[in-house]
Structure formats: C-alpha cells, structure tokens
C-alpha cells in the first residue's frame, strides 16, 4: 500500500491519459510515444550514473571530499564541481539525491548550490548540440553567465542555510 501511495501522481496522470484517449486518440498516442521514448532514455542513462554515485559513497572518504568540495577548497572546488555537474547526464531532479550524498560527505552549501546550478546550465554531452543550433555567442553567454550567477548564488545561500539544516 505504501509502495502504491508513492506512485499516486503517476497513477493520477495515467488516468488523465486514459481520459484523453477517449477525447482525442491522436494526442493521446503522441503523449504515449513521447513519454515512452523519454522513459526509455532515462532508464538507459540512469543505471551507470547511480552505480558511480554508489561507488563514490563507498570509496571516497569524507576527508577527501571535504578537500574537493568543502568550505576551503577554493578554485579547485569550483573546477571539481563543474566537472562533476557537467559530465553527468540527465534532468536536474536526478542531481538531488547526488547533492544530498555530497552534503553528507562534507561538501559545503556553496558548492552544492553551484553544483545544482551548473547541472541545469551546462551538459557536456549536449553542448555540441546547443552550439550548432544556437551559435557560439548564445552558448557562451548561457554558460558563462549561468556559472557566474550560480556561484554567487552559492555564496549567498551559504550565509542563509547551514549544512546541518539541509540534511
């Protein structure tokens, strides 16, 4: 029953889909096709990311992560965070459980906010696509403004939220 409750939004939307199938079959078919393709993409993408995060959880010591993403990690922390956030694929909500793990391991709030911001701004696998569809100028503005903005936001959030409170 508890398991079923966690799927209630999905089930509500599913009934919405059935309802739509009665009203307009073409739109419903389109929705099924779009959703199916996205879920498939996600199911292919997620296992290796979660395996890597699980391994990071087991093997990377707290002291090591504090050195990379802790309060005193400096420019190295920025580089490490950008690398971690942009190399991984997937939508932002996949980054939430990863961010919690990093927080538990001693990452500072600043780098967690920066991590989430960078995740939603730059994705190395789709960077080429952005560049070819929207041009160099657009891509550069997007990336550089986004990263600077979220780093500053990180500094601001660090003053507002303590690590302990977030966990």
């Amino acid at each position: 029953m508890k398991q079923l409750k966690r799927y209630r939004f999905f089930l509500i939307l599913l009934s919405g889909l059935f309802l739509m199938a009665f009203i307009n079959q073409a739109v419903a078919a389109e929705a099924v096709q779009l959703t199916g393709k996205n879920i498939l993409d996600m199911l292919i993408l997620l296992p290796p990311i979660f395996i890597l995060v699980g391994l990071l959880d087991q093997w990377v010591k707290k002291e090591t992560l504090i050195r990379y993403m802790g309060e005193k990690s400096g420019i190295f922390g920025i580089l490490f965070t950008v690398l971690l956030a942009t190399a991984a694929a997937g939508p932002l909500y996949i980054a939430f459980p990863i961010a919690v793990l990093l927080l538990k391991k001693g990452a500072s709030v600043r780098y967690i906010v920066f991590f989430l911001g960078a995740w939603s701004t730059v994705k190395l696998p789709v960077l080429v696509y952005e560049f070819t569809s929207f041009g160099l100028e657009f891509t550069l503005i997007h990336i550089s403004f986004g990263l600077v903005f979220y780093y500053v936001t990180g500094i601001l959030f660090e003053k507002m939220y303590s690590r302990q409170k977030l966990l």
Partner: peptide, 10 residues
C-alpha cells in the same frame, strides 16, 4: 521520475 516524464509527455 515516471510521474514527471508522463507529465512532460502529456
């Protein structure tokens, strides 16, 4: 994840 995906599809 499934709920959001279905929502986006719809």
């Amino acid at each position: 994840l499934l709920a959001i995906m279905l929502f986006v599809g719809l």
